[in-house]
């Protein structure tokens, strides 16, 4: 297996070496499928032979101790990991019928389908309205009426419309941390993605805001496929349908959440979820 650097061109070379066809057969129940995914930060082998199938319209939780590669993994799914210059990736990732490292499938297109919510709430220093309208605007929507509709729909979708509907023109920085994170979720919904990646979305929030975000995730999974990284095992148990346990860059176990928490197959999983390390 060859390796490649973070540059698009090199990325795609390997993708082409491995597969000559852009499309592969994935069942329509799977949104992401990774095959022998390996990733290095320089010499540091951060992801090792990851083979996962992420199901549609479910919440998939990624758990594991700090530094196990769980954040790296979901950032690879929308290729945000390439913002680190020294990254090398090999293997393949299919998003539905598209190979994400294929040069004909542009990264901007991928990120329109696969939205992301970050660890720390990161609204723009703009008004609430402009935050939500940012995505639609960069994709070319200028019509004020359409934008108004998108903003309202997205804010309702993120369960924050009632809190902010009278102050849409105020700066989003004036909101609390929990509200800011739901603004970021709304901003993500505004591009009408198919999949939402969430990288420890509640780690900077208080318990009440965390609860609201968790309830929201339950609502959102009706319309979106959600992949959520969390270091909080209770959270994974509460909100997810599937759970993958990462350790040292490898997937130790991937199964239904109930199964994984009540009846782990691997000794290391059991040790981790019972709090013996991590």
């Amino acid at each position: 297996m060859s390796t490649m650097t973070g540059k698009d061109k090199k990325f795609t070379e390997v993708a082409q070496n491995k597969e000559n066809d852009t499309t592969i057969n994935t069942s329509n129940k799977t949104v992401f499928e990774t095959k022998d995914l390996n990733l290095w930060y320089g010499e540091d082998h951060a992801l090792k032979d990851i083979n996962l199938k992420i199901p549609e319209n479910q919440v998939t939780a990624i758990i594991g101790p700090s530094g196990c590669g769980k954040s790296t993994f979901i950032k690879t799914l929308n290729r945000m990991v390439e913002m680190v210059p020294i990254v090398k990736v090999s293997g393949s990732i299919a998003y539905r019928d598209k190979r994400i490292f294929d040069p004909r499938y542009r990264v901007e297109e991928l990120r329109t389908q696969v939205g992301m919510v970050f660890q720390k709430p990161n609204p723009f220093p703009k008004s609430i309205y402009d935050n939500i309208a940012y995505g639609p605007r960069i994709h070319g929507i200028k019509n004020k009426k359409v934008l108004d509709q998108i903003v309202e729909k997205s804010l309702r979708g993120a369960a924050i419309w009632d809190e902010v509907k009278d102050r849409l023109n105020e700066n989003a920085y004036g909101l609390s941390g929990g509200q800011q994170q739901r603004i970021c979720i709304a901003r993500c919904l505004a591009i009408e993605p198919d999949v939402i990646l969430m990288d420890e979305p509640t780690s900077a929030l208080d318990p009440i805001s965390t609860l609201k975000v968790e309830e929201l995730v339950q609502e959102l999974k009706k319309d979106y496929s959600i992949i959520i990284v969390t270091h909080n095992m209770q959270q994974a148990a509460r909100i997810s349908d599937k759970t993958a346990f990462f350790l040292n860059g490898e997937v130790v176990e991937f199964s239904d959440t109930n199964e994984l928490f009540s009846n782990p197959e691997d000794k290391r999983t059991e040790d981790y979820i019972t709090g013996r390390f991590g």
Binding site: M80, G115, K120, N122, P123, F124, G135, I138, I191
Partner: peptide, 20 residues
């Protein structure tokens, strides 16, 4: 993290530079 937010929504480099 502001750049990440923009790129994460599929913005191009120029859109990110110009708007963020």
């Amino acid at each position: 993290y502001l750049r990440e937010a923009s790129y994460g929504m599929g913005a191009t480099k120029w859109q990110t530079v110009k708007n963020v």
